[in-house]
């Protein structure tokens, strides 16, 4: 099958592989220790691990967008901010 129309590049391929690895890790974690540790975080709604992962990823995407829109520094700093944000989400939300 011809996949040239999908125009793969190394960075985007890496990006998707990382996402896939995250999902696989979460699944294994869930199978080892089921339940996803549901709790009420600071946002006042119940979250499990999966929800927290989703909130981190979506939030990171928006951090990157706002970084591109308003801050001219390198995007790697946005990645750092996003990682800090993700850790915060996993601890408190």
């Amino acid at each position: 099958m011809d996949l040239s129309w999908m125009a793969w590049t190394k960075p985007t391929a890496t990006f998707f592989i990382i996402i896939l690895c995250l999902l696989v890790t979460m699944t294994i974690w869930e199978i080892k220790i089921p339940g996803g540790a549901p709790r009420l975080g600071i946002l006042r709604f119940e979250t499990t691990r999966g929800d927290r992962l989703f909130v981190s990823l979506l939030g990171s995407a928006f951090i990157h967008i706002f970084w591109l829109a308003f801050i001219s520094l390198s995007l790697w700093w946005a990645l750092v901010v996003a990682c800090i944000y993700a850790i915060c989400v996993f601890i408190w939300v």
Partner: peptide
Amino acid sequence: MTVVNYSVQDTFGNNQFFWVGM
């Protein structure tokens, strides 16, 4: 996935793509 791939590249047709980053 295709949309993500296109969004970081430029093309002049013929399936030739050039990396342009963000």
